[in-house]
Nucleic acid binder design. Structure first.
Lengths: 233, 233
DNA sequence: CTGGATCGGATTATACATTATTTGACATGG
DNA sequence: CCATGTCAAATAATGTATAATCCGATCCAG
């Protein structure tokens, strides 16, 4: 049984935080993602420090990190607030993905070894086997699939950017389900992608990935819209 | 006399820092850019606090900010170091620019008003008038030129990313001169770009911008290589 | 509506405790 | 003698605690 916790691409943890700052970052981020913290809610340093029984310094550090990832907005002298993860936010990130991922893919096609293909096929087999039964697991596997392609890219900046965005998107989409249509499409595109990589069809692979990411974004945005409509109606 | 200090696109200061943290950020960043701080030099919190006569807290904050912009590398329990702004670093950033800027441009072409065109032409006129005589001024004007195109883009993430990268690149290229060939090319491309925008030729404008950014990156990298060779030889 | 008074909380300043890393003296095995 | 390993002191990072200031928002009297 393979574990299916998504790992950040080798040698690129989001670090820059100290031990405690880092775990605080995790905790607060989870609170934001899970919705325990409302959108736009104020994040009061003293409160957070007390709630997690630390002093204020680590809290500030964690907030800075969260700001960097886009989960929190800080305005000088007015403190931090939970960033509302709204449709615009998600759209922005997907759009950047549509621009960057094809480039990462194009490079990967030129560099892929037979072992890489085996890896991809193995993960894809797991995805098919799981067949969306366990949503969380699907998310992790899907992330692993793309990580295999991107993690060795020479452009560390681009790969890092991708990973950061990926984490946000994973957090968001965790709240929704895949429609049947989307499930079929994901499978189709992954299989097709593997084929293109095998054939060394860099351009086709890149185009496909652009579609894949865009489709994924469109799907999540639909879900968000639907959920919002439900809430309003 | 227009001032030619490059302004961040409206409503998007990179900050999130407090007054003092912010000015420290500026100061340290300048020290890094100007070379007063060596590559990989350790940034000791207590020292910096003393040098700038503040306490350690704002210094920590400033370092976090600098880390976010890529000027500083922080490793847990080992503190902060000046990030060597090497060729890979610069290449990575330009490559991302080549992916993102064309998309921003494409949108701008569809949205540009006559006033925008006037603005662009005015800045371009200033650029031509200055004709690279004052390098710093050229840099600011060139930045302003592109800011006009990007600052109103609906994708705030993308625009912000562009701006952050722009600041780094401006810092780096400040150290070098434009070759004659590059000067001519920049002028040509700007003029051509304005024309495409006037004609509503979004695709052509996008392609041209990709070239423009790539050319700019290539040029800076050449300079860096040359400088390094000179240092070694 | 306008100019303070007030309040919450961010920001800054200190001082100190704790912990991890680095350094250099010294010892040991080859 | 040199390479390697060990250990303790020195160095800084990190975390805690507390107080002083400063800023922005709100309330209130005029």
């Amino acid at each position: 049984m393979t574990d299916f916790k998504a790992q950040p691409p080798a040698g690129m943890e989001p670090t820059g935080a100290s031990t405690q700052g880092d775990s605080l970052y995790q905790l607060i981020r989870d609170d934001i993602i899970s919705g325990r913290l409302q959108a736009n809610e104020r994040l009061i340093v003293a409160d957070l420090a007390q709630r997690h029984s630390t002093s204020t310094n680590p809290v500030r550090e964690a907030l800075q990190l969260l700001r960097g990832e886009g989960f929190v907005v800080i305005s000088p002298n007015r403190g931090a607030r939970v960033r509302p993860i709204d449709q615009n936010f998600v759209r922005d990130i997907y759009e950047i993905g549509v621009l960057i991922e094809p480039a990462l893919t194009r490079w990967f096609v030129g560099m892929a070894t037979p072992e890489d293909i085996v890896q991809l096929e193995k993960v894809q087999a797991e995805i098919e086997e799981n067949n969306f039964a366990d949503a969380l697991r699907h998310s992790e596997l899907d992330t692993r699939f793309h990580t295999i392609m991107y993690e060795r890219h020479y452009n560390r900046h681009a790969a890092e950017l991708w990973w950061k965005h990926r984490e946000v998107l994973r957090a968001v989409s965790r709240r929704y389900n895949f429609t049947l249509a989307r499930r079929a499409q994901v499978m189709r595109e992954h299989r097709q992608l593997i084929q293109f990589i095998k054939d060394g069809e860099a351009e086709k692979a890149a185009t496909l990935v652009a579609q894949h990411v865009e489709g994924s974004g469109r799907h999540v945005l639909e879900q968000m819209r639907a959920a919002e409509a439900a809430r309003a109606g």
